[in-house]
Amino acid sequence: MKKAIYPFAAILLVAASAFTFIKSQDWKVNDDYTIKFSSEDPSGEFKGLQGAIKFDETDLASSKFDVTVDVSTINTGNGMKNTHAKSDKWFDATKFPTINFTSTSIIKTPSGYDAKGNLQIHGVTKEFTIPFTFQKTATGGIFISSFDINRLDFNINTAEPNHGASKLKVDLNIPVTKA
């Protein structure tokens, strides 16, 4: 009878392992992150990044980004431009206070990763892909991304398509530590 315990235990272990799930790593954003945008005019940055970042290079299926950026934190270096950017003519920060990105899938690419998901700006939600790389550091890692975005796709001041640049380059540098 005792001999039967070992095969039984082995079967139980194998069976149990089938129900084991790997929880993706949660990351906490460090304060020194940067969200910069640049064009001929304007250029600047956002602060106020919040949300949940789950990312595991070995388990992309359960990795997920669900983040928001506070529109009122926009800084172009010029007070007048900041005020205009937050007005109803541009971002309308009172009505649409945040920019949201929720990933639906993350896939490996030759140069890094692609986070596919829904980007909501100015109340307009569009499918959007954010390419990024992840560099491991001693204390955690850094998400680095660079992509272009067209403000007209999100109905931002479509009445004046040539007032300032319509296409802007966005550069993200987001150092994180394990949560």
């Binding site: 600047g44 270096g77 010029n78 007070g79 007048m80 431009k81």
Partner: peptide
């Protein structure tokens, strides 16, 4: 009025 200050400058307005 038109100048853009460095982004590390607080309260450019």
């Amino acid at each position: 009025l038109a100048i853009s200050l460095p982004l590390d400058v607080q309260n450019p307005e």
